[in-house]
């Protein structure tokens, strides 16, 4: 188990390293650099100033050189400053990360809490009216673009009925838990609606497959009742593929969260990265994207552990 985890951590670190290079390179390919922005913001700056500043910040060096310098600093724990917020990037990122993780965790758990029972019930009576309804709803959720849904939710619940805030966030100190929760309702609903359909369909498909297996017949022949057959014998087997697919989907959910936060003006990673890119705050964007990558990698690692725990045929080697 320790070896397995160590191996996977090394693997994740290499992915992260590769991603940092790719993202750094992409940033470098973007038109304009911070100095251009300074020039446009400050008409008194001359082109000599610009050359001097470029040299000062090392922007005149080739990109590989700059990357190497950045990497050396980053490994040493110095992730640099955010130009936009004029703070160390970590000070900016951590609160945003907290918000995003909270949004993701609530949406993810809620989606599973709906998808698992729905998928199981639909699989127990495939092609029944209930199954058709579940499928229809699931397809509707899958088909809806999340940005469009977010706007509709805002129009209906914030503008027309004025029930919930359209964006922003509450803080515990101001309005207590309920006030904070009110700000989360629409973003969470948005994410749940777009992800629950897929989760339900995976669960249903895996359960139908599991319920068709010979060991289900064996369990029934032993005298096991329907609840035991479904929840003990079929579910655990069905969860093996479901965990894998949902973990792969986690990246999707994450990018959904980024869009959702941007639309609901919720101060999370999504909005931060968006603002950083739009404001050419390269360092913040870079580190933000790497944090996002890490989050996805951690999600996948957790899924691998869950997978190996569910299936005794998988050994940690």
């Amino acid at each position: 188990m320790i070896r397995f985890l160590a191996g996977r951590t090394v693997q994740a670190a290499s992915v992260l390293l590769l991603m940092s290079f790719v993202i750094y390179g992409l940033m470098g390919l973007m038109p304009g650099d911070p100095i251009d922005l300074m020039i446009s913001a400050d008409p008194k700056m001359t082109s000599e100033d610009a050359v001097r500043l470029r040299k000062l910040y090392g922007l005149d060096q080739p990109i590989t050189e700059r990357y190497a310098n950045w990497l050396a600093a980053a490994v040493g724990g110095d992730l640099g400053y955010s130009r936009l917020y004029a703070k160390p990037v970590l000070d900016v990122l951590f609160p945003a990360l907290g918000n995003t993780v909270r949004l993701l965790a609530i949406s993810f758990l809620l989606s599973l809490a709906i998808a698992l029972p729905m998928g199981i019930l639909a699989a127990m009576r495939p092609y029944s009216r209930f199954d058709y309804s579940v499928n229809l709803a699931a397809f509707a959720g899958i088909s809806v673009p999340s940005f469009w849904l977010a706007l509709i939710l805002i129009i209906v619940f914030s503008v027309t009925f004025n029930l919930l805030p359209a964006g922003g966030t509450g803080t515990l100190s101001e309005g207590g838990i309920w006030e904070t929760a009110r700000y989360l309702v629409l973003p969470v609903a948005n994410l749940v609606i777009v992800s629950v359909g897929g989760h339900t369909r995976y669960t249903r498909a895996a359960m139908i497959e599991a319920l068709r297996q010979d060991y289900i017949r064996t369990a029934r022949a032993k005298g096991a009742g329907p609840a035991r057959v479904v929840l003990k014998h079929a579910l655990r087997n069905a969860m093996i593929p479901v965990v894998t697919i949902i973990a792969l989907d986690f990246g999707m959910l994450f990018s959904g969260a980024l869009i959702t936060e941007t639309i609901f003006a919720s101060p999370g990673m999504g909005k931060l990265i968006f603002d950083a890119i739009m404001g050419s705050d390269f360092n913040l964007a870079l580190v933000g994207l790497l944090f996002a990558t890490t989050l996805t990698l951690v999600g996948n690692l957790l899924a691998d552990i869950a997978y190996a725990r569910l299936d005794p045929r998988i050994s940690y080697r």
Partner: peptide
């Protein structure tokens, strides 16, 4: 009852 395929008739997990 005993079935044909002991591999698939026993629950793998």
């Amino acid at each position: 009852m005993v079935f044909q395929e002991p591999m698939t008739s026993l629950n793998p997990v």
